[in-house]
Design a binder for these strands. Structure first.
Lengths: 244, 244
DNA sequence: GACGCCTAATTGTAAGACAATTATAATCGG
DNA sequence: CCGATTATAATTGTCTTACAATTAGGCGTC
């Protein structure tokens, strides 16, 4: 059990403070000095906590104005997590499983919302167009993440979208060694998915998206074919959901 | 253009340092004092940066050992996600959608693993037994979370499990006002789900689990049948302490 | 009333000191 | 000679104090 340092405790207490008082972005927090007194620690410890939270955009600090609750955005995180090499945490298979669950999980809602609001389709289409025009690999990498994040965000299930943002960052390193012909190939796949969704056929879209994501698994299998025989056809799960 | 603070600069430099030297998790970094001298700032600024990166698990610090590159884990990041959740205050409907996606998403894997390892069934069964013996509501609350967390963890998809842990914690407040007869009712549901999974029928289990979770939605609908589509800032109860 | 200056509150940075922790070396017992 | 224990020292963790930098809000002048 890793013993929590004082600044980490302060961060946790600050979190509870924000939750208990039901503070929302923009609301004021006590000053560093007041927090120090209230929590019974020195200003240094408070600062280490607020600074750390400030890095993430959770709190916002300015001289004279003091501290306030900031707007949490996943973009801040990605900035610090852009070290793809440091993220070798979960094996590829588990990340792919995770992606399939999270991304396909929201498709029904995406289809429903598309039916009511055509602009959702337009946005996704625009991102995919941008992807078509991409020439440099970095452009594609960025666009690819953007597309998949927007897809889940379009479900309107924001908690799922937030988690998906993280997963996409984690996954980034596996996209790195993807040949150009390979990713040019994926773009019509995107198109098919959103077109199918516009028709309301979210179950078909689920199959398509699953296959799209599983491409990474196949590639991995090929790379280490020497290992045990495995069922490459995969095609495994379409998660049957939606009980009415 | 937001002016970067010194500690943020240090964080950026540290990031470049890690990238340029191609450091991997576990590799040693200079000490705080050395970094301070090298970057021409005080130890305080270095500390604020390393602390912030430490929150994300990007650097790891220990007395005498010094600083080293850490490995970012989903556990670590859920701390950040928990802030996101806390500030966002998602409505019940979205949390239910999230739960259904995450919990049912792992069922296929659970069934597969159960077939190979019977102890998975036993564990789930044990938790459900404990649930049956629960008399106090607090026991039930704890057991309920434990069951659903174990269920997802049994899929072996750890990233999904980590996220699910978080969702369960935030869902707790909605379980709070659940009558005893109501939750006694849910226990056979659990049993049916794990039994079905043992048979390998994960699609049936998906339907069952979806219904099980949707009970909360129905109840919600009933509660505010009078009040129309109002977001109705949820009242009451928060947890007091941080979830580790 | 509008504009610019002043002041004070608050964060930002620094230096020094000491406590807490722990890897490594030294010591001791067998 | 080896294992366990103790002592040492290096490093992070925390506190205190001090001061610089920034800026919101008040004051005064026109």
């Amino acid at each position: 059990m890793p013993k929590l340092s004082k600044s980490e405790l302060v961060a946790a207490k600050l979190r509870n403070y924000i939750i208990n008082k039901r503070l929302k972005p923009g609301d004021r927090l006590p000053t560093e000095g007041e927090l120090a007194e209230q929590f019974g620690v020195s200003r240094v410890s408070v600062r280490e906590a607020t600074k750390a939270l400030g890095f993430l955009g959770i709190v916002d600090a300015a001289p004279r104005r003091g501290l306030s609750v900031g707007k949490v955005s996943m973009k801040r995180l990605s900035r610090y997590l852009s070290f793809h090499f440091a993220l070798a945490d979960y094996p590829l298979d588990e990340l792919i499983d995770t992606r399939i669950v999270v991304e396909t999980g929201g498709l029904r809602q995406v289809a429903e919302r598309m039916a009511k609001d055509p602009s959702i389709y337009e946005e996704l289409n625009a991102v995919n167009d941008k992807l078509r025009r991409a020439t440099k690999k970095s452009e594609w990498l960025q666009g690819e993440v953007q597309f998949h994040c927007l897809l889940v965000a379009s479900s309107g299930v924001r908690a799922l979208a937030a988690f998906n943002d993280l997963v996409q960052v984690f996954f980034q390193k596996f996209r790195a060694d993807f040949s150009r012909s390979r990713w040019k190939n994926g773009i019509p796949g995107h198109q098919e998915i959103i077109d199918t969704l516009r028709e309301g056929e979210y179950q078909t879209a689920t199959t398509l998206l699953t296959t799209h994501i599983n491409v990474h698994r196949d590639r991995d299998k090929i790379l280490k074919r020497k290992s045990k025989k495995s069922d490459a056809a995969s095609a495994s799960a379409l998660n049957g959901r939606s009980p009415a």
